[in-house]
Design a protein around this nucleic acid. Structure first.
Lengths: 222, 222
DNA sequence: GGTAAATTTCACAAAATTTTCACATCTTTC
DNA sequence: GAAAGATGTGAAAATTTTGTGAAATTTACC
């Protein structure tokens, strides 16, 4: 497994590389986006870890450029507060992101998860999350249940996406209303229930991932 | 922010503590692993900085011991060339690693990074409390007994959580009713007993942590 | 504008939890 | 060691919470 680590700070590159090598990976470094694009063209990396803010060519642009020729999984590093970048990034085919300052341990866990995930899925696939037979195509906003496209309404998709992005986290109805419906929604709590019901119906057997937390709310648990 | 600095060399402890205090932290010192474990048990430090090589109980063993009860972030100090120790440390859940001789400035940068990471990972990652084989996943609102999910009702969870949050503190039934049930509960005192009973059943062998204080109430004691 | 789709509300059914209560068991006190 | 008081416990009753179908409303799209 060969990684490419892209960051303009040599210190971060060094730390990440040391941890990666500790985990048994081979790693090369690039100091900015331009370099990264050139190196990714020439070599077949198994995974790229890339900072967003870099001189010459930023992480997003580099990612876009690399995607033109290669389908190498990419994990993005971002400073705190660049929240909106996350979602945007998924449309570019980014596989995961880690917020700085990150723990090398956490980063390596993500590396493992992403590469495992990539190995299973088709190479031409864009960004997808997979939980058993449930696949979420984030770029296309589509969900597949055992390969068949689920006909989801926008709210269903948003709700699922939010739960999945926060999997294993207990979510109250209020929290969901605020995050998925928006702070300006003043309707009934139980609206969430109805949408959970419809979402579960759409998910077929994978309704099992949507867990009711009595007295609390819901969570996604794979 | 309270730090615990563990090293057998008083000089190093002093330097680190002075620098930490200069940066606005509170700091306490321990001279070896044994002392560190005892202090970490009694206090809630925000972060522990610990040397590896120490008399009586080395850093790794101390770390392992502390991890049994607390999830305090730990930064390890090591002499250069103790590479194999490094490998071992990551598996123990050490958060970062600084090689001696280090600059206090660098160490403080790591301290900041690690504590920021821990804070931000609180909502995102799984914040868990552990008492032997009893685990409480606060983010997911689940309790695990020897790895198996305990099926707790909301009140059971709330009650357990409250007792754990105030562990070793005697709680009267009235206090529990007020804090867990709410000030507007006007039912029977003995309701608490019933819930304690159900909670104990859910906890299996770890029912031992729920201690009855005759004439008083209950407490959680690990 | 009109129609279809999506969203929200609502009411009732179903399920799970909470509370009460009666009695058993254990502790303390005299 | 008996009585009084406190806690443990099982089961039924009461209450709360969630699931769900259907109607009402809003939104999106021709």
């Amino acid at each position: 497994m060969k990684l490419l680590i892209v960051d303009d700070e040599a210190n971060i590159r060094r730390v990440v590389r040391e941890y990666a090598e500790f985990e048994g990976y081979t790693a090369e470094e690039a100091g900015d986006g331009m370099e990264a694009v050139a190196m990714a063209r020439e070599n077949d990396y198994d995974l790229i870890i890339m900072d967003i803010m870099m001189p010459r060519l930023d992480g997003f642009s580099a990612c876009k450029e690399i995607r033109k020729t290669k389908d190498t999984p990419i994990i993005m590093l971002s400073a705190r507060g660049e929240e909106y970048d996350k979602l945007f990034g998924f449309e570019l085919g980014i596989d995961d992101y880690v917020v700085k300052p990150f723990s090398p341990k956490e980063l390596m866990a993500r590396v493992k998860a992403v590469s495992a995930r990539k190995q299973q899925s088709q190479p031409q696939m864009q960004q997808r999350l997979r939980f058993e037979g449930l696949e979420i195509d984030m770029a296309g906003r589509e969900v597949y249940v055992d390969g068949a496209k689920a006909n989801m309404t926008p709210k269903e998709y948003d709700l699922l996406f939010y739960l999945v992005r926060n999997q294993n986290l207990a979510m109250t109805r209020d929290k969901l209303l605020e995050e998925v419906w928006g702070y300006d929604f003043f309707g009934d709590d139980r609206t969430v229930d109805t949408h959970i019901k419809m979402l579960r119906n759409s998910l077929g057997e994978y309704r099992k991932f949507i867990v009711t937390l009595r007295g609390m709310g819901y969570k996604f648990e794979a």
